[in-house]
């Protein structure tokens, strides 16, 4: 990481020195939901930097929505130059269904095309009355857990993966114990909302539940909005590493003549300036320097790559798809509830 970002910082300006006249570019960044402020700041910084370096003006429009729905709209023709979504799965679909990017898209940029990462943490009421410290506290009887449905929410699949990450630590390869653990936690979920916003609403506005499982950056956003005197964040000992990917939509960019700018934009996201902005917006930086700077802010947590848990695609097929493991677990939970 360090090597790349420093090299990038060194080479990019040189490359631009050779550009001839001042041009105007427009980029469309199709992103997912909670990134509005993040990209508002990033874009401001990038366009200023870019103009200084090359004399070219870049205007970046943003689109935000559910990650899956956004991918869908790109497939249907939304003229995105770059996509910055929540799940690699979503960009995979754009590749497979609309062939707008090459098959090897994820390897084109560092860290599997993910300049900033996130993870899954807990949001609890101020004072943490239930004394929730780690994932096993969520399985305790009487604890009410709020998390969206992994079948309907892409982000919620990472919540599930977070449980798996802990289970791997605790139970190793014992599938039975892992399954019981997962079941115990979901049995404590009174309401399975369809999306993160619904879940947040349930926890914050309707005041249901003792703990909300959420993406780290969204948890921080919630605290920011609703006051540090109402909620606090609990970072578990281990969690899953979420790597929201970014990519240039090559076909569109080629058509628009923005291929170079788009790539420069994506590359810039790895520079320390960008990484700092991301960190300020509660995303975990991938640049080593910035990581060090914000180490205290993000705390100590063991992050497990989802590939070590079987990989997203495998989990999608076996667990979250219709008729998969999750459906079975839910059925069992409902059955025992009726008794």
């Amino acid at each position: 990481m360090k090597k790349f970002s420093s090299i990038a910082a060194a080479i990019l300006p040189l490359a631009f020195a050779f550009s001839a006249s001042a041009a105007e570019y427009e980029l469309l960044n199709v992103s997912y939901d909670p990134t509005r402020e993040l990209y508002q700041e990033l874009n401001k910084s990038f366009t200023a930097w870019y103009e200084k370096k090359t004399g070219d003006t870049v205007t970046i429009s943003q689109s935000h929505g559910g990650s899956g729905a956004q991918a869908r709209s790109v497939i249907d023709g939304s003229p995105a130059d770059v996509v910055t979504l929540a799940l690699p799965w979503d960009i995979e679909n754009i590749q497979k269904q609309a062939k707008l990017l090459p098959e090897n898209w994820q390897s084109l940029k560092p860290n599997e095309s993910s300049p900033f990462n996130s993870t899954i943490v807990f949001l609890v009421r101020k004072g943490n009355p239930q004394n929730i410290k780690d994932w096993d506290d969520l399985a305790k009887p009487g604890i009410k857990v709020i998390t969206p449905n992994p079948k309907t929410s892409g982000g919620a699949r990472y919540n599930y993966a977070g449980i798996l990450a802990y289970a791997k630590e605790k139970f190793g390869d014992d599938q039975a114990k892992t399954r019981d653990f997962v079941k115990a936690i979901y049995a404590n979920v009174p309401v399975l909302d369809t999306g993160a916003r619904g879940a947040t609403n349930t926890f914050v506005k309707r005041r249901i539940g003792d703990v909300l499982i959420a993406w780290e950056n969204e948890a921080y956003l919630t605290v920011k909005r609703f006051g540090a005197d109402t909620f606090e964040i609990v970072i578990p000992s281990v969690s899953v590493l979420a790597k929201p990917p970014v990519a240039v939509v090559e076909k569109n960019a080629k058509e628009h003549g923005t291929e170079k700018v788009a790539n420069d934009y994506i590359d810039w996201l790895y520079t320390d300036d960008a990484q700092k902005i991301a960190a300020e917006n509660f995303y975990r930086p991938t640049s080593d320097t910035v990581k060090k700077e914000y180490a205290e802010k993000f705390g100590n947590i063991k992050l497990v790559d989802i590939n070590d848990l079987g990989g997203f695609n495998k989990l999608q097929q076996e667990v979250w798809a219709d008729g998969g493991e999750f459906d079975k677990i839910l059925k069992e939970i409902n059955a025992s509830r009726d008794n």
Binding site: D33, P34, R36, H64, G66, R197, L221, K224, R225
Partner: peptide, 10 residues
């Protein structure tokens, strides 16, 4: 909706 989904309730 965009604002709401970005936690910008107010």
């Amino acid at each position: 909706e965009l604002l709401y989904s970005n936690y910008e309730y107010v």
